[in-house]
Design a protein around this nucleic acid. Structure first.
Length: 490
RNA sequence: GGCGGCGUAGCCAAGUGGCUAAGGCGACGGUCUGCAAAACCGUUAUUCCCCGGUUCGAAUCCGGGCGCCGCCUCCA
């Protein structure tokens, strides 16, 4: 199956053909480790996590690199403010990052390089640029001469004159042209520094990604990703530096994810309107967050609200409930071998084709929203089969439900959802509801018994009273042929 | 101001020239139930921001409006 990817460089969807047959190198800009990650970071992480999973499943041998920026102005400022070293701050925040990602089920990249561990590579890349006349030293800094690189602006669609209007030289900078950007920054007193041919200093932000991506993936590689806000200037500068140094195309496909917004505005540290991953996960299941993040195409803006997470939670519950019910049927002893009705066979046949449908959707520029739609269709299919299985039990349902569940789980894998045991998921929700209701299990069971006695005596008033008061506490009662069941208000 | 994107049901959202405009959340009616809940079935956009054009045919292409958002400074 051909894979189509929207390439920011070309501003259109195009067929993806890897540089080396069957192999893909992908580099994604990671975080600057100075603060907790918010939902915007989660989106980028989850989107590329899913993309990498899909590429691997499609048979590609993927090398996935995601960096940590562990030295820059924000890190220095923050560590000064907190009175700790930059490395203490960075270690702490990378620890937080891993906590969040592990909770979210975002897999580690194959290589997770840090800028400070690649100073020699960075220096040699800068030297190459100086040698080729694209960079110059000034006052202990080294700058890239934007005007010497003719293709500058090709990614973000800007020309130099426009850029010049907004560009300026800040105090303390030594650049010759306002358009130029720093490759190396001379150390100010008290700042961390490394020795270099230009004296003590540290790398600029953009150069680390060029140096590290080319080190691990080669001077030309397939996919470079990141948030849309990185397209300019970060990625534009990466292209300029890398291509000026090598004379070769740097990246073949640029992939940018859209922002998470809140009330229609971009969520960002500077606007202060962000919600951290940690905060979200205290209230919602990690898979509900993944479902929310994947519910819209990765390039579009995605608006966060508590309601949207509640919706995602309801949708997730629906899936787990169906899978749980299916597992119950699979385990229940049934002797009858009634033949299966036609519509059950149709549902099962649809579910058999699920993985292929999901793959087709994903191969079209990673259309997760469409793919998830197919998964929900399949869940409805399972519920249809269950409906029939409850009405007219037959041992034949066991196999068909087992198969259907397996296919759904298989298809859901690349999204990192439905990874829990359905029984455990529901149990967890139920216990949480019980706890927040303030009742003990014993008290709840006593109430259920009392209600059932009332029902036997047709004392509906008392029975409903008990049910209503439990409902107010978030516990639902369900009278089934096999007795009264209680559950969280799913 | 320059560049880019978006506007599909009550809400979220897929669909980029032609089969019944996916799916989720919600609402309403039915089946089930003592009544409920869950699940299933049905209803919920004769129409895709507005106006004009191209075409046998447009949500989808083109032109013009209106509205929203992003980038142009650190940002996933």
């Amino acid at each position: 199956m051909s894979l189509f990817i929207y390439n920011t460089l070309k501003r259109k969807k195009e067929e993806f053909v890897p540089l080396h047959d069957g192999k893909i190198g992908i580099y994604v800009c990671g975080i600057t480790a100075y603060d907790r990650c918010h939902i915007g970071h989660a989106r980028s992480a989850v989107v590329f996590d899913v993309i990498v999973r899909f590429l691997r499943k499609s048979g590609f041998d993927v090398t996935f690199v995601r960096n940590f920026t562990d030295i820059d102005d924000k890190i220095i400022n923050r560590s000064n403010k907190e009175g700790i070293s930059t490395s203490e701050l960075v270690e702490r925040e990378i620890g937080h990052f891993y906590q969040d990602m592990d909770a979210l089920g975002v897999k580690r990249a194959d290589i997770e390089p840090r800028a400070t561990e690649h100073i020699p590579e960075i220096i040699s890349l800068i030297e190459r640029l100086v040698d080729r006349g694209y960079a110059y030293e000034a006052g202990g800094d080294v700058y890239f001469s934007v005007r010497k690189f003719p293709n500058y602006g090709k990614l973000s669609g800007r020309d130099l004159e426009q850029l010049l209007a907004g560009a300026r030289i800040m105090p303390g900078e030594h650049k010759v042209d306002p358009l130029d950007f720093a490759l190396w920054k001379g150390a100010k007193p008290g700042e961390p520094y490394w020795e270099s041919p230009w004296g003590k200093g540290r790398p600029g932000w953009h150069i680390e990604c060029s140096a590290m991506s080319m080190k691990y993936l080669g001077e030309t590689f397939d996919i470079h990703g990141g948030g849309l806000d990185l397209a300019f200037p970060h990625h534009e500068n990466e292209i300029a530096q890398s291509e000026a140094a090598t004379g070769k195309q740097f990246v073949r496909y640029w992939v940018h994810n859209g922002f998470v917004t809140i009330k229609g505005e971009k969520m960002s540290k500077s606007l202060g309107n962000f919600i951290t991953i940690k905060d979200i996960l205290e209230q919602y299941h990690p898979e509900a967050l993944r479902l929310f993040l994947l519910s819209k195409h990765y390039r579009s803006p995605l608006d966060y609200s508590p309601e949207s997470l509640n919706e995602a939670t309801s949708a997730l519950d629906r899936c787990y409930k169906a899978l749980f019910e299916a597992a119950q049927i699979v385990e229940a002893p049934v002797k009858k071998q009634r033949p299966l009705p036609e519509h059950v066979k149709e549902s099962a046949a649809f579910i058999k084709g699920l993985e292929e449908k999901v793959d087709v959707a994903m191969a079209d520029d990673f259309n997760t929203a469409k793919a998830l739609g197919h998964i929900f269709d399949a869940i409805r299919g399972v519920n249809r089969i269950l409906e029939e299985a409850r009405r007219k039990p037959s041992a034949l349902y066991k196999e068909i439900l087992k198969d259907s569940s397996r296919q759904i789980l298989q298809a859901a894998k690349i999204f990192g959802i439905l990874t829990e045991d359905p029984g455990a998921y529901i149990e967890k929700r139920n216990l949480a509801a019980l706890e927040s209701s303030g009742l003990s299990l014993k008290e709840l069971e006593t109430l259920i018994e009392e209600r059932n006695n009332a029902r036997k005596e047709k004392n509906w008033e008392r029975a409903d009273e008990i049910r209503d008061s439990l409902a107010q506490k978030g516990i639902l009662l369900k009278d089934t042929p096999t007795g009264t069941k209680w559950s969280a208000d799913l």
